[in-house]
Simulated assay, not measured.
Amino acid sequence: MKTLVVTADATITNGVAAAFPDQNGIDLTSVETVPAAINRLANTRKGGGQFDFVVLEFDLPGLSGLKGVNHLSDLHDRRPFALLMRGGSLELAQRAYRAGANAVISKDLPANEMSHALELARQGQFLCLFTDLVHNPAAISLVQLSERELQILRGLCDGLQNKEIAHAFSIQEVTVKMHMRAVVRKLGAKNRTHAAMIARDLNLV
């Protein structure tokens, strides 16, 4: 079983390896950056082979949100693909599934539960498994965003630029910029990138 793990966290790589201790012939490859993952998937496919399973840390810098997940999944020919993240929501899991990931799993799971979750994900089953840390209504209530602002925020977290968000919702780019400024202000963020990070921490997307 050829498995690609995309993370800069050795704990995650070791956890994936430990999830399949009784299987012979496991071939685990680990890369620490998104560009390295793209190159490895593209080169493997070009050589006539492919990975059986991809495990990706969703918080990895440079991923560009679900847009990046979709690109990696396409290179992986939509085969079993698991996202590991801290926090999350059912809505995000559904959108991740549409982007090509069949599993969204909390990074905070105990080792034995992580093993079971990864095994199910490797089999291609749709899986959404979070910890109690996900549900934090008190934190979410501190942020009051309009429905349009939430749409803009989701587009931002998917890695879309203002022009792409405007096209997606059939609005003017100047309107997107206006809402984006409001989102950044309401979240107390320094910039749009920081706003996306806060949104994920508060499970707003």
Score class of each variant (00 low, 15 high):
12 I>R: 02
12 I>T: 05
15 G>S: 09
15 G>A: 09
15 G>W: 03
17 A>D: 15
18 A>F: 09
18 A>Q: 13
18 A>C: 10
20 F>P: 01
20 F>T: 08
22 D>M: 10
23 Q>P: 08
23 Q>M: 13
23 Q>R: 14
23 Q>W: 10
24 N>L: 12
24 N>W: 11
27 D>M: 11
28 L>W: 06
28 L>K: 05
28 L>E: 07
29 T>Q: 14
29 T>M: 14
31 V>Q: 04
31 V>M: 06
32 E>T: 15
32 E>V: 12
32 E>S: 15
33 T>A: 03
33 T>K: 00
34 V>D: 01
34 V>H: 04
35 P>W: 01
36 A>L: 08
37 A>N: 02
37 A>G: 02
37 A>M: 01
37 A>S: 04
38 I>N: 03
38 I>M: 07
39 N>H: 15
39 N>M: 14
40 R>K: 14
40 R>W: 06
41 L>H: 00
41 L>F: 00
41 L>I: 00
43 N>Q: 13
44 T>W: 07
46 K>S: 14
46 K>M: 12
47 G>M: 05
48 G>V: 05
48 G>F: 04
48 G>H: 04
48 G>T: 05
49 G>M: 13
49 G>H: 14
49 G>N: 14
50 Q>N: 15
50 Q>D: 12
51 F>E: 01
51 F>T: 01
53 F>S: 02
55 V>P: 01
55 V>L: 04
55 V>N: 00
55 V>S: 00
55 V>D: 00
55 V>G: 01
55 V>W: 02
56 L>I: 02
57 E>K: 08
59 D>Q: 12
59 D>Y: 09
60 L>T: 05
60 L>E: 06
61 P>S: 07
61 P>H: 05
63 L>V: 04
65 G>D: 05
66 L>K: 00
67 K>Q: 14
69 V>E: 01
69 V>D: 02
70 N>S: 15
70 N>L: 11
70 N>P: 05
71 H>D: 10
72 L>Y: 03
72 L>A: 03
73 S>N: 02
74 D>N: 12
75 L>S: 01
76 H>V: 04
77 D>C: 10
77 D>S: 15
78 R>V: 09
78 R>D: 13
78 R>S: 14
80 P>F: 03
82 A>R: 05
83 L>S: 04
84 L>F: 05
87 G>Y: 01
88 G>L: 06
89 S>H: 10
90 L>T: 13
92 L>T: 09
93 A>C: 14
93 A>F: 07
95 R>K: 15
96 A>C: 11
98 R>C: 11
99 A>S: 10
101 A>T: 02
101 A>K: 00
101 A>C: 06
101 A>P: 04
102 N>T: 07
105 I>R: 06
106 S>F: 07
106 S>C: 13
107 K>Q: 14
108 D>F: 11
